[in-house]
Design a protein around this nucleic acid. Structure first.
Lengths: 336, 336
DNA sequence: CTGAAAGCGCTAACAA
DNA sequence: TTGTTAGCGCTTTCAG
């Protein structure tokens, strides 16, 4: 581990000269220094530089669960942009727990320049914790507290829910079930209410017993589907709020021998691998996870530059489009 | 951002006392210091500590692509164990490129204590690059060069391939196609040759034209399946070396209207989500990605401790078991 | 264009 | 048990 002193000695100059060359200044015998650097395999020490500069070329990325394909793709998007600008990322999973986020960020914050987070809670304490970090923050997919002073990236949840509702309506469905995620989250809440609003405007009300709200998990999706089959025999279509719940629900319907779309039309948010290969290739509202990652990283990188340049910036909200991918899991309701 | 001086002043002691308390020593008025710390919201600066100690409580994790579900699960496993021991992880995707690995690690190495990597190449230059890092390294899933002096975690590829071959043989298949990944990688090579060896021992030879070798990608899997359909009409079963290639192949067979297992039995390495929901739920050799991550992190953490304690350790190879999950994509060959 | 020296925040001798 | 101090590797004044 050669350090700057070794290089200086090797090249017969002072350490200041090395440092200057590394930061792009012109020096007299650049050739000798370059040779010394490559001969010794010198790499500036990141900790020393971070300590001195207060900048670490590192972004903290906190997601609920890195092993969820959607979040993995999101992280990939952030990583691509960050790497391109010479930044690296520290990744942590929160398991949807505020305390995990808080602990991780507490121990991390003075080693990173910015934070990209899919927050577990929309709570006030989350907003406060993030504000107190004193570093650029971008919220992804979900908001937090009231008027958060952060950049924000999410997809057009309302538009997606609207397309879903209109599509189901256009096929003739009038008795529809809904499986939605936690209403304390932005996507959980917006997708749910917007979907119901569109139906309602068309004179279609979703019954209490046809509405299931819970965690964004495969387990809850499964449970909700089972409950729907138990208690409400009348629905002809179901709308599910995300991919993990959708997988659970699909498994439950399949196990119970419910034919899709013969007995039940199925529509959900988020695409997934192999969707085309299912017996009834599933129709989805898909969103661009990688692009969301790109947008989030761009926002952060811009703000880091801005902080350097001393120019304050407005907080920006980026809303990315979703699209309705029609496959074969929805049809007209069965005739009675 | 309060620092140790602020705390010392606030509590009326010297900075050394603070530092001591933080490292668990007994001090006289611990109460006052604790109060000062929480009032000022003091957090020791990670860069300063890293610079001073040369230890960073950080592990670099390099995988080919974090958005691949298998690698995402692997990272999750590493993360779980690392976090539990107070370590954090820096994640980077290499896109199967040596240069990316080398660049990333070069810029990273003096900010981390150890490296977990799924290396892109089994090449000698990879072995050398990793050795020159001078830090604990664990290789996951693949080896590198000859007699690498690293810990190694992988699954029982040979056993899995053997089970696959025996299962297909037991169903009566005699003309079998193989789609395998890059032979420069451990799993690519072992799965391929072991599979062929078992068949060969049973007197079954796989024809040249029924063997497709390429990248571990969805695109290659698709292409290979298409080629198989074009050139070799005689195969009754196909064995695919991993999940991404399997997805591509499945898509191709489906598009061509090949019925599984009616026309063709299908068996692959790696489980995937929704496998049970496919028209022919696919039979797989599945491996424990999270457990591999746990094992890798444990090895690294032990070695970091060992380095501290000055006790040298043997390099350890951990081989985790795989299992044959029989679903419905394999049957007896069609009768002619 | 260059070098000497201060100091980022912390830990670990060393002295008391 | 405590305080003083050197120094981890680097960047950046300040003089030259």
């Amino acid at each position: 581990m050669a350090n700057i002193h070794d290089v200086a000695q090797h090249a017969g100059v002072s350490i200041a000269t090395i440092s200057r060359m590394l930061s792009g200044e012109n020096i007299r015998n650049r050739a000798a220094v370059e040779r010394a650097i490559s001969e010794l395999g010198y790499r500036p020490n990141a900790s020393a530089r971070g300590l001195r500069l207060g900048r670490h070329h590192t972004i903290a990325v906190i997601v609920p669960d890195i092993s969820n394909p959607y979040f993995a793709a999101l992280v990939r998007g952030i990583e691509e942009r960050a790497m391109a600008k010479g930044f690296r990322i520290i990744v942590a999973s929160s398991d949807e727990k505020f305390t995990a986020e808080s602990d991780v960020l507490g121990g991390l914050i003075d080693a990173v320049d910015a934070v990209a987070i899919v927050p577990a809670e929309a709570s006030e304490r989350t907003r406060r914790m993030l504000t107190e970090l004193g570093k650029p923050v971008v919220l992804i997919d979900r908001t937090v507290g009231e008027n958060p002073e952060f950049d924000l990236v999410h997809v057009d949840n309302a538009g997606g829910a609207r397309m879903a509702a209109e599509y189901l309506l256009s096929l003739g469905h009038r008795r529809i079930g809904v499986i939605s995620g936690r209403q304390e989250t932005l996507p959980g809440q917006v997708r749910h209410t917007e979907f119901l609003d569109v139906l309602s405007a068309a004179g279609v009300e979703v019954k209490q017993e046809d509405t299931k709200i819970g965690e964004f998990t495969r387990a809850f999706g499964h449970q909700a589907a089972c409950e729907l089959m138990d208690t409400s025999s009348g629905i002809t279509a179901v709308f599910v709020g995300n991919n993990t719940m959708a997988q659970g629900a699909l498994l439950a319907f399949h196990a119970a021998g419910v034919s899709i779309p013969g007995d039940l039309s199925f529509l959900c948010f988020d695409d997934f691998d192999l969707a085309e290969l299912l017996p009834a290739p599933v129709t989805v509202i898909s969103r661009p996870a990688i692009a969301e990652g790109h947008a989030a990283a761009d926002l952060l990188l811009a703000r880091i530059d801005g902080a350097d340049a001393g120019k304050p910036q407005e907080f920006r909200h980026m809303v990315l489009p979703v699209k309705l991918t029609i496959r074969k899991s929805c049809s007209e309701p069965p005739i009675h």
